[in-house]
Simulated scan of single mutants.
Amino acid sequence: MYAERPPRPSLADRVACVWLRTASADHVQLVVPDACVDLIWGPDGLFVAGPDTGPVPARMRAGDVLHGVRFRPGAAGDLFGVPLHELRDLRVPASELPGLARLRITERPGPRLRAMCSALASRPHTADPAAPAVAAALRRGRTVAEAAGRLGLSERQLHRRTLAAFGYAPKTLQRVVRFQRALSMARAGVPFAEVAARAGYADQAHLANDVRRLSGVTMGALVSPLPRLP
């Protein structure tokens, strides 16, 4: 079972949602890149799921419960106390991240999501204010050069800021946010050929190849509810 809900208003500028996942049986859950970073409280404690560049098979055991806080793309800022690109494609225990140690999230029985959100609300928001505009420009199919120009940045400045804000270089960020836009349209029932055209792919084959590289499966598999691996 998976459920998510909006964050409390004080966190809405940085948190996309809070979520809960409960495993009713042993299985492997497929996690795909979304330009987000998650703070997760699982059976082995608190950890951070860094920005992914490819599919991550997450093994779940029957009875496992995960509580998560998903940050908006580019909104984690310096919360973890290390450069975000150092967390790319990693799952890192909170004890190894100096920023989370300062939050003092108490690991004890009780409302875990409430404890996580209260700790986050006590920390000033220090993310790059241009991050949402960067993601939006690349999501709409702008080239890296076009996005930089529209934001009044050089390509080098854009590279530095996207690496800091998202943990990705601009071209990787572009592929991830374009993929997520395509996935949202496909899940809404838009035909795949139309998805390819509207999301900025050269053609449907380009869409299919990019989906395979980023998720390891086909778009058809992804639009099925909660895709799992054998």
Rank of each mutant, 00 (worst) to 15 (best):
A208C: 10
A115M: 13
H125D: 12
R8A: 14
L222M: 10
V48Y: 08
P132R: 04
G99T: 05
L214H: 03
L103A: 10
A165W: 10
P225T: 02
P33F: 06
R108P: 01
L151W: 10
G99E: 08
R140C: 14
S122W: 06
A165F: 12
G220K: 08
G77C: 08
A148E: 04
L79V: 03
S122D: 13
G216Y: 03
G220H: 07
L173N: 08
F192H: 13
A12P: 01
L226C: 06
L100G: 01
Q157C: 13
A136P: 06
F179A: 06
L20I: 15
G189C: 07
V32M: 00
R59F: 08
S10C: 15
V144M: 05
D13P: 09
D64N: 10
D89N: 08
A202E: 15
A197Q: 15
P170G: 02
F80Q: 03
V18N: 01
P98E: 02
R212N: 03
V176I: 07
P129N: 10
G77S: 06
T172W: 02
G152W: 02
F47T: 14
A196T: 12
A121L: 09
F192R: 14
L20A: 15
P230F: 00
G152K: 02
V48E: 06
Y168H: 09
L173Q: 11
L20Y: 15
I105F: 02
R139E: 11
V92W: 11
I105L: 03
R181C: 05
A188L: 07
F166H: 03
F179I: 09
A131K: 12
A148M: 02
Q29K: 13
A23I: 04
Y168K: 01
C117V: 07
R59P: 02
R21T: 08
R70F: 01
A188W: 01
A147T: 03
G167F: 07
P132I: 06
V65F: 10
A197T: 15
G54Q: 02
D203L: 05
P43A: 13
V92Y: 09
R175H: 11
A115G: 11
L46K: 04
R156S: 15
A136T: 12
A12Y: 00
G149H: 13
R187D: 00
N209T: 15
A148T: 03
P109T: 11
V28G: 00
V190R: 04
Y2F: 14
T126I: 08
A182W: 05
R123N: 09
A186W: 03
M116F: 09
L103W: 11
G74K: 12
R160M: 14
A133I: 01
R178K: 11
L66R: 09
L229G: 01
D78A: 14
D34A: 12
